[in-house]
């Protein structure tokens, strides 16, 4: 008859720590991938319209965002409910777009400046009046490549 049990004093086995670095690396990579630098907090309500013929926005480092919509609830007392333009972290006026584009341009190399895109993230309830003011301002500073950011979907109407 085989002997199944050894008479050895119990020892708690050590937890293998060799893979700990891997786990840490994994976490690091995960956070590196998901975190995007200088993400402006959106201070306007945004329900993007839906479109089907959309293209993916390439080269995110060359994209400057302009958010347009009515301020979210916590800013109602200060900024009201009329649609506003948000550049970086501040509510600004149409005249400030020129400065915004200029400062965005100055951070890019000359070769990349022509490839810059302005992404307009606009709430679907906003009227076209403010949009055409923004487009006019962009034309004036020569930022001609724009993208109307939408959600992707097939049921457009």
């Amino acid at each position: 008859m085989a002997k199944f049990k050894k008479d050895v004093a119990s020892e708690t086995p050590e937890i293998a720590t060799t893979s700990l670095p891997d786990i840490i690396f994994m976490l690091i990579f995960f956070f590196m991938v998901t975190t995007s630098m200088r993400q402006a907090t959106v201070m306007v309500e945004q329900k993007l319209p839906m479109a089907s013929e959309v293209k993916k926005l390439e080269n995110k480092s060359l994209v400057s965002y302009i958010h347009i919509g009515s301020p979210i609830r916590q800013y109602h007392s200060t900024y009201g409910t009329a649609p506003r333009i948000q550049l970086n972290d501040k509510f600004q006026m149409v005249q400030d777009i020129a400065d915004f584009i200029a400062s965005e341009r100055s951070t890019k190399s000359e070769a990349d400046q022509s490839k810059m895109t302005t992404a307009l993230k606009t709430d679907e309830k906003v009227k076209m009046g403010i949009m055409s003011d923004v487009k006019m301002a962009l034309r004036r500073v020569g930022a001609l490549k724009i993208s109307y950011i939408t959600t992707k979907g097939d049921k457009v109407f």
Partner: peptide, 16 residues
């Protein structure tokens, strides 16, 4: 993980 990919209608504005 998606890095918040944006989709949009790309247009070229006419020069001023």
């Amino acid at each position: 993980t998606t890095m918040g990919t944006d989709y949009g209608l790309i247009r070229q504005l006419p020069p001023m």
